[in-house]
Design a protein around this nucleic acid. Sequence first.
DNA 1: CCCGAATATTGACCACCATCAATATATGCA
DNA 2: TGCATATATTGATGGTGGTCAATATTCGGG
Lengths: 116, 116
Amino acid sequence: MNALPILEPVTDETCCTPASRPALDAEQAKRRALVFKALADPNRLRLLSIIKAESSGSTCACDLIDPLDLSQPTVSHHLKILVDAGFLHREKRGTWAYYSLIPGALERAAGLLGSL
Amino acid sequence: MNALPILEPVTDETCCTPASRPALDAEQAKRRALVFKALADPNRLRLLSIIKAESSGSTCACDLIDPLDLSQPTVSHHLKILVDAGFLHREKRGTWAYYSLIPGALERAAGLLGSL
DNA sequence: CCCGAATATTGACCACCATCAATATATGCA
DNA sequence: TGCATATATTGATGGTGGTCAATATTCGGG
């Protein structure tokens, strides 16, 4: 289990960089690595990029298959990973699934680097 | 070939976020994913954290083995990945190897997220 | 010049991951 | 109700990655 969304909201871990900080313990390192694992795939980066570039807030999954050169199940798989990691929100409307960037998620992920 | 250090210096890719941007092409996505791959391991995050926390600029490799619970070859392996990815600088002094954060590397990696 | 110590490299092994075809699920519509 | 469509899940497969033991390399000192 440990179903905790990985990109947790702002906590003392993610902000307020003190001058010096004790090094990451194994547990924190593991959780943070999960965030970067989600980003460590070219196709997932492209998904985030496409969804971010959409002027409307959300993007239909059907519009995410052609741009990448992947099968529908594979795209669905990558989207799930991004949702689980806390980057994307999924909303089903009828048969369609719409994905949108969770506000601040990319910024929080970036913040994890500053607070190493 | 393609020995390009992954965390390239500041270019139009990494700064100046225009209002709208064409989505990442496959090539850019692949290169950026390499950066996050380097960060997608708990032990490598701990290495970066320890080296960053050192008050002196550089840290002896011999001081990086005990804190992690890994064999010497494995630590050496992770350090190489971080060097190749452009996060760490290695300087040999006699038999010892000293590692230091490349200034701005973490910030540039964080910037890759903002410019998706 | 040889020895010991610190680090890097090699080779092997196991776990995890990206991918696809096939199938399942769910929704809208006639 | 039954079919067509959009999406998710399952199962299998090839490839990648983290790890260690063993070995190689490099350097300083006696």
